[in-house]
Amino acid sequence: MFRRALPYYISIGMTPGDFWHGDPWLCEAYRMADEKAARRSDWLAWLNGSYVYQAIGNNAPVLNPLSKRPKARAYPKKPYTQQLEDEEREKTAAQRLENGRRAARLISEKVARMLEKQQGGE
């Protein structure tokens, strides 16, 4: 059983010495690392296909002779992940600004009520 598993672990970077004499947990760690690497590779292939799909879609009007607007759309200026980060940053900044405005309004209302109480009590 172990002899059949050895080639797999060697293929994912484990040394025979680690396989035979190392901590048994190393086998699980190497296997988990290989699964993560496979998922990352799959994600990068999908992302590459997404960029190609968008590039073809942006140029499709130019390639269609029946198109009413035969003008190519611009390719994105930033990678998708950076666009998402920028959107999140803008959303967070807008939320902070709104929270600050709300806090200022509540404080001014509270101060106005306190002044009214002081003026009414004198």
Rank of each mutant, 00 (worst) to 15 (best):
W46Y: 11
E109P: 00
R89W: 12
A103M: 03
N64Y: 01
L84C: 14
L106M: 05
R89T: 14
A94T: 11
A60V: 10
S41M: 10
P61Y: 01
K110C: 10
N64A: 00
P24H: 07
R31M: 07
R105I: 02
N64L: 01
G13L: 01
T81W: 15
M114Q: 10
L115M: 01
H21I: 09
N58F: 03
L44A: 05
I107A: 14
G22A: 07
P70N: 01
Q95A: 13
L97V: 09
L84W: 11
G22T: 12
D42C: 06
W46Q: 13
E122V: 11
V52N: 07
Y80L: 15
G121Y: 04
R69G: 04
A74K: 11
F2Q: 13
Y30K: 03
G121T: 11
L44N: 06
K36I: 08
R113Q: 13
L47F: 15
T81H: 13
L106I: 03
R96W: 12
Y51S: 06
A72Q: 14
D86H: 08
A5I: 01
K78V: 14
R39V: 08
E98L: 14
H21A: 11
I12T: 05
A103L: 06
E98Q: 15
D86M: 14
E85K: 09
Q119W: 12
Q118K: 08
W46E: 14
P16N: 04
L6P: 00
L6G: 03
G13M: 01
P16W: 04
R31V: 03
N59E: 15
K91P: 00
L47Q: 15
L44G: 00
R102N: 08
D23Q: 07
R105N: 02
W20G: 02
L66K: 04
A104G: 02
Y80N: 11
D86N: 12
A72M: 07
P79N: 14
R96P: 02
I10G: 02
A45K: 10
M32W: 12
R39I: 06
A45I: 07
A112N: 08
T92R: 15
R39N: 10
V111E: 10
D23F: 05
A104S: 06
A55N: 05
D42P: 01
R31N: 13
E35L: 07
Y75A: 15
D18L: 05
R96Y: 12
A103T: 06
I56A: 04
R102E: 09
M32C: 13
I56Y: 02
A74G: 10
K36A: 12
E98C: 10
T92E: 09
G100M: 04
H21N: 12
Y30Q: 02
T92V: 08
Q82D: 11
